[in-house]
Write a protein that binds this DNA or RNA. Structure first.
Lengths: 121, 121
DNA sequence: CAGCATCCGTAAGGATACTG
DNA sequence: CAGTATCCTTACGGATGCTG
């Protein structure tokens, strides 16, 4: 392992401290639905309804809440068009894309190794 | 972005499907306490009491539960020594170290950018 | 279509006390 | 020291109905 915990601490300082920004953001992006929504947006812009269908199992409430959180975090951008019927599109911001560049290898690894970790029944 | 969602789907196929192994493991390792415990173990072996103190805010119940889950996932190894008073040590398995190699860049990024994402109050 | 408001059940998780 | 057992509260999150 190239990076030691001490090195992480140098930069973050407070990953292990309660209520620190790092923990808060970590909780957002690593939440059950946060990852999936971010993943869905990784290949580009999506409409509300698309996300709802794409992220299987998510309720409207959680989709709305997740999107609002990620938007407030500056990771997701919301664009609404003044049309009837209304059209709203969501996409990653630069910050969000930056984040996903780090998250994709992880998700990739999990997807590849999930079978070894949790024996497929 | 080098990797597209389509490419992820090729490999994982079912990240977006409910109850798929990938989602389960993702939920374990990306859970509030899962990440922190894994991070704490990244720099080597730790005893129960060390982890308890290191991961600030975690309750005994959650530490036990988190460790048991990660152990069952084959990511963490538990070694108990037949001494009085008892001594138990936890460390990452090879699989766990492999995982953390992918997770560290992400945590690193979050630690570095949390201030931009969540304005520090 | 894209949401918000409301109600409500479940279960994650905290605090405490106890044990090998 | 390293947990387990128990109780109890909060809040996550689902279902439904309504609105611009």
């Amino acid at each position: 392992m190239a990076v030691s915990l001490a090195q992480i601490r140098e930069k973050s300082g407070e990953v292990f401290t309660e209520g620190c920004p790092t923990r808060v953001v970590l909780d957002h992006i690593m939440s059950k639905w946060g990852v999936l929504v971010l993943l869905a947006l990784t290949d580009g812009t999506h409409r509300w309804g698309e996300l709802r269908r794409e992220v299987e199992g998510i309720s409207e409430k959680m989709l709305a809440s997740t999107l609002r959180t990620l938007e407030a975090d500056g990771l997701v951008e919301r664009t609404s068009f003044p049309e009837v019927p209304p059209r709203v599109e969501y996409s990653l911001t630069d910050l969000g894309r930056d984040l996903m560049e780090r998250m994709l290898p992880l998700v990739d690894w999990v997807a590849a190794n999930a079978g070894r970790v949790i024996p497929v029944g």
